[in-house]
Structures are given as C-alpha cells and as structure tokens.
Design a protein around this nucleic acid. Sequence first.
DNA 1: CCGGAATGGTTGAACACTCAACATCCTTGT
DNA 2: ACAAGGATGTTGAGTGTTCAACCATTCCGG
Lengths: 146, 146
Amino acid sequence: MTRWLDEEQQRAWRAFLDAQQVLQRGLEAQLHDEADMPHGYYELLVRLSEAPERRLRMAALAEAAVSSRSRLSHAVAQLEQRGWVRREACPDDRRGQVAVLTDDGYAALAAAAPGHVEAVRRLLVDRLTPEQLRQLRAISEAITRV
Amino acid sequence: MTRWLDEEQQRAWRAFLDAQQVLQRGLEAQLHDEADMPHGYYELLVRLSEAPERRLRMAALAEAAVSSRSRLSHAVAQLEQRGWVRREACPDDRRGQVAVLTDDGYAALAAAAPGHVEAVRRLLVDRLTPEQLRQLRAISEAITRV
DNA sequence: CCGGAATGGTTGAACACTCAACATCCTTGT
DNA sequence: ACAAGGATGTTGAGTGTTCAACCATTCCGG
C-alpha cells in the first residue's frame, strides 16, 4: 500500500537531509562562537529590526520567524534578560504584547551580521550558481506554499 | 567590507530558511505523533537497518547520520533504554563500541516507516517536479561537498 | 620501545525546544 | 447582554542537543 520512494527520490531526499544538517550545524556553530546566540535568536532580531519602529506583536513575530508561540515566549524572555528586547503592552488589545528591539539589541545584531552573512556565503550562496539559487528559491516556495 | 547578499540572494536564503523550518517541524511532528520518536532517532534506526548485520561502529554511525559523537552517545543510550539498540564491545579495538539494531528496533522502524514516507511525500516530494527533485539533489550535494 | 599526540567514546551541566495546560481577553451569535 | 467559543500569550515539565572536560586506547616519530 505504501508508496515508497524510488531510487531517484530516495537519493534526493537523503542528500537534502545531509545538506540540511551540515548547513544548520555550521550556522549554529558560527553564531554561537562569534556572537554567542543561537540561530533562532538571530532570526528574531532580524525580523524585529526590519519591522516599522522595530516592534512587532508577538503573534506577528512568531509568524515572521516561523516559530511557535511557545518557543517565541521563551526566546523573548531570554532576549529580554539580555537587554536586547523589551516587552510592552499592546494598546488596542489587552491580551497583546509587543516585542521591541532595544538599541543594545540592534547593536548586537549589527555586530553579529557580518560574520553570519559570511557564513551563509561560505556554506551556501558561494557554493551554488545563480541559477541554482533561483531553483532553490522556487523549491523552497513550493514547500512553504499552503 | 562585508559582502552583503543582494536582493535575489536574500530572497532565496529567506525562502530556504522558512522552508527548512516548515519541513523539519512537519516531519518531527509526524514522527512524534505516530511513532513517538524524534527524527534523529529514526535516522539512526534507518542507517543501522541498512548496515551489514544491522551493526555499525559508533563513529561510523555518527558519520552516516551526520551526527556529533556526543549526540550519538546520548541518543544510543536512549535507544538502548527502549530496547531498540544494544551496544557491544568492538573485538579489534578495545576503545570501540558497536551499535546493533535489535529485532524490536527493526520492528519499531518498520512500523514507523510508512507514515514517515507518506509525510516526506506530502511535505516535499509530491510538491516538486521530478526536475526540481534532481535540482535539489545537486544543490544538496554542492552544500555537502567538502 | 617509549612518550606524546591523536582517536574513540562517554559524561554532566547548560541550554533550547516541544507539548499540554492554563489564564486572560476578545468576538460572535442569539 | 451574555454565554460559548476563539485568540493571545505564558508557564512548567520533559526531552533532546551542545559544549567542554574527561578517561581509555591506539598510533606514530625518534
């Protein structure tokens, strides 16, 4: 009954799994070593830094960073601890919380970014042709598409 | 000084990040729900099941599963706890340990496999054209290539 | 053949993520 | 107006991963 993967599909899947591991491990290690933050936190800082006034509702931030609510809660608590983010009450919804990137948080992001971008290049971008990068985008969007 | 990513690269990178998250989350959830094991454990069982006599040196298993030694040690301890794997001393190297897949372990893998493969199809394979799957493989191999 | 370096593997602490349960607040239908 | 259901965000326990330190064994150059 099960539609197993054929040889071709199997190979592609395995190759992808391995690549994903290598990539993720590499990025995580670089950020940990040079900026002392996990990749997930970096993503949060990025999304916040790009938001108007550097602030976002928790739910919006969670969606932007493809994160669960729970994960975000824990992460923001940690970021607040470090002084990189602060929480504010949401004016028009008393349930709501708004995460705001502090100046220190922005500085931490700015300090981490060059090394991180270099790692992204070294591990991914510079290894692919422009054509492959376009393909990767199309593939990724097919995966994400609802 | 920093060679930032251009618009095109940025988009591809972000799309890939999102897709990776979605995929990983989906697979993890499926295996957790239907087979009560993390994806990493599943991978270990797969690699063991494909090895001659269903046994591998720890180091070899770590490499096959793209895992760190430490992670593997902890994971195998847990798998041993569940009775899915057992450790044996390595005859020709007194430092060595060999991980052996038990019958229970094989049964657990066989039970989990159909649901997992279906998830891989639903989340990845069936969303891509055969051509895209070939591209993904080439891209993945470019990332993994030393 | 010996001493230092490399390899194999484990351990414990610190940390991040997951899930389920929960409290609070908003919304909707009647 | 109000009850029921939905949404928002947090919490704590459980679990997996990482990192650094460690012991044991094997390898290798002099």
